[in-house]
């Protein structure tokens, strides 16, 4: 049953468009057969549609063939598409490769960091913690580099621990893991911590 006028009108609107479901159509047709007001409503909407269609007829003074040729000539000046973009709909393959490389880099860096973090509290290796923040996912349309390095903390560096001693330093002190990602080519050490 169609309980109220609004629902009846909505059903009539869809009935006119042929988009009412089979079951709803049957219900509406039963209602139409029994309800003169509903029939009048249907007639009003039908007439409205006819008037809207009649009033919306256009006879624009446009030469469509020439317009299409004009657009075609402009398309000819555009570079042709190269096959491929739809292999992964909506996203160029290169972006996926770069994202995968970034994700792989992060996983490797976290793995390395985990490896060097003491596994349990001992007198010489107190329990440590590691905080990994980010990276935020961002699209990258150009080339990029990822570098991962590990080494002594800033405190050790200030005390003059040479890189040749880095393994010792890491073995006996809190390590530092540095991951840097950039959309620029590598240009030396990047000390940003993530």
């Amino acid at each position: 049953m169609l309980p109220d006028r609004d629902q009846l009108e909505y059903a009539i609107s869809q009935y006119l468009d042929g988009t009412l479901s089979v079951m709803d159509r049957r219900v509406l047709e039963e209602r139409l057969a029994a309800d003169a007001e509903a029939r009048l409503m249907l007639e009003d909407y039908r007439r409205l549609d006819e008037r809207v269609i009649a009033g919306s007829r256009l006879n624009l003074p446009i030469n469509y063939d020439r317009f299409a040729a004009h657009v075609s000539a402009q398309i000819d000046n555009e570079p042709a598409h190269v096959a491929g973009p739809l292999a992964m709909p909506g996203m160029a393959m290169g972006v996926w490769v770069r994202r995968f490389a970034i994700a792989a880099g992060v996983v490797m860096a976290v793995g390395i960091g985990m490896h060097f973090i003491p596994q349990g509290p001992t007198a010489s290796h107190p329990a440590g913690s590691m905080v990994v923040i980010g990276p935020a996912v961002e699209t990258n349309s150009g080339g990029g580099t990822i570098s991962i390095s590990y080494g002594p903390t800033d405190a050790l560096r200030e005390r003059g621990v040479a890189m040749s001693l880095v393994d010792d330093a890491i073995a006996s002190h809190s390590p530092r893991v540095v991951i840097s990602a950039s959309d620029q080519p590598a240009s030396g050490a990047d000390d940003r911590l993530y």
Binding site: L58, L60, I62, Y64, F67, A68, V71, S72, I75, D76, E78, A80, H81, V82, A83, G84, P85, L86
Partner: peptide, 22 residues
């Protein structure tokens, strides 16, 4: 069109120029 066949796009233009202009 994405495979490089520009004339395929012409067909889309012919197909939709009228409703688009309207």
């Amino acid at each position: 069109t994405l495979a490089g066949e520009k004339r395929a796009f012409d067909e889309l233009v012919l197909r939709y120029q009228r409703p688009a202009i309207a």
